[in-house]
Amino acid sequence: MFRTITSSFLLAIFAGAVYAHGNVVPSAVDVEGLPPLEEWGEENPYRDAEGETREKIIETGQRGYGQNCVNCHGLEAVSGGIAPDLRMLEPGFDDQYFITMVREGGKGMPSFEEMMEPESVWAIKTWLETKYEDAMAEKYGN
């Protein structure tokens, strides 16, 4: 009897870990109004955008994050510990790794390449970079 209860308990724990990333179904993001990109590239082409264009990129990135990333990476990119805390992605740090993980998936993350366009992925990265700035200001009081 004890063995059955223990086995059931362990199975429940491991089943929870397997489904911890939630039910993620990649969805397209409306990129109307963003500067068009002809290829994926290896670094964020939107990082230095300014004015209304930057505002549109960040708005699109926030919306795209909410549609595709929030279930695993948390509200406002604050992870609950299962997936990486994306606020800690320093602007410019390994853009190629970021884009490869989003496109191809891996380490428990699904591939988003078939559903999302380069514009939406780089817009999400641009929005995440604003979260880094906020996190550093909060941490260091700047």
Rank of each mutant, 00 (worst) to 15 (best):
F9C: 11
L86H: 01
P35H: 00
I13H: 07
I57L: 03
A17M: 14
C72P: 06
G51S: 09
A17H: 08
L10V: 09
L75Y: 13
R47S: 07
D48I: 15
A20Q: 06
G33C: 02
G22D: 00
H21A: 14
D85S: 10
S27H: 07
G64W: 01
I13K: 06
S7T: 08
V70Y: 13
A12P: 02
V78R: 14
V25P: 09
E43M: 11
E42R: 06
I58W: 06
L34Y: 00
N44Y: 02
Y46K: 06
L34A: 00
P45N: 07
Q67P: 03
S27I: 13
I82V: 15
H21L: 10
C72Q: 08
E59H: 04
A20V: 15
L75F: 14
D85F: 04
E59S: 04
G41W: 04
A12C: 05
P35Q: 03
V25T: 12
L86P: 00
I57D: 02
N44I: 01
G16R: 07
D30L: 03
G80S: 15
R54W: 02
T6S: 14
N44Q: 04
A15Y: 03
L11R: 12
E39G: 09
G51Y: 10
E55A: 08
E32M: 15
E32I: 09
L11K: 13
V78M: 14
N68K: 02
